[in-house]
Simulated assay, not measured.
Amino acid sequence: MSDPKMQVRARVRHEPDRSYAVLVEGPDGEVEVGRTGRTADLWALAHAGAARLFGESLGADDLTLHVPQPPYGHDGQWGRMNK
């Protein structure tokens, strides 16, 4: 039988300065692998970070990236709540 495929999970954390932190679940728990201000860079950061953590080449199907909705607003724009 062949070895089961490894499935790596990553997530994005919205930072107060409006940047994004990419975290990958590694062998020793969740590890921050990079930060960016561009959503276009999220997948590349997660993929490169997972490859560094696990020391092997991962295919596109081997990585799941969860990008949550920003904490404010519904259209991807951050907003400010006034009291």
Rank of each mutant, 00 (worst) to 15 (best):
T36R: 01
L45W: 00
V22I: 15
G55E: 02
V22R: 08
T64M: 06
F54V: 05
A44N: 12
D41R: 08
G49D: 01
A60C: 05
E15S: 07
W43L: 07
H14E: 04
Y20T: 10
V12A: 12
K5S: 14
R11D: 04
T64N: 04
S57W: 07
R13E: 15
E32T: 10
D17R: 08
R35I: 03
R18H: 13
W43I: 10
G59H: 02
P70N: 10
H66E: 12
E30Q: 08
A60D: 14
A51K: 13
H47I: 01
D3M: 11
S57L: 08
D3T: 14
A10P: 08
V8A: 12
R11N: 09
G59S: 13
L23N: 05
R18E: 14
H66A: 13
P16N: 11
A10D: 08
R52T: 14
A44V: 09
Q7Y: 05
A21L: 07
A50W: 01
A10Q: 10
P68E: 07
G49Y: 00
Y20I: 12
T39Q: 14
H14Q: 07
D28S: 13
T36V: 05
P16V: 06
R35A: 06
A46F: 11
G29Y: 10
A51Y: 00
A10I: 06
Q7W: 01
P68T: 09
H66K: 11
R11M: 13
A46R: 06
V12Y: 14
L58D: 07
P68L: 03
E30C: 04
W43G: 04
R38G: 06
P4T: 11
T39W: 01
G59A: 12
T39G: 11
V8S: 03
D3G: 10
K5D: 13
A44F: 08
E25R: 12
R35G: 05
L58W: 06
P27W: 12
W43A: 05
G26S: 06
V24G: 04
Q69D: 14
R9H: 10
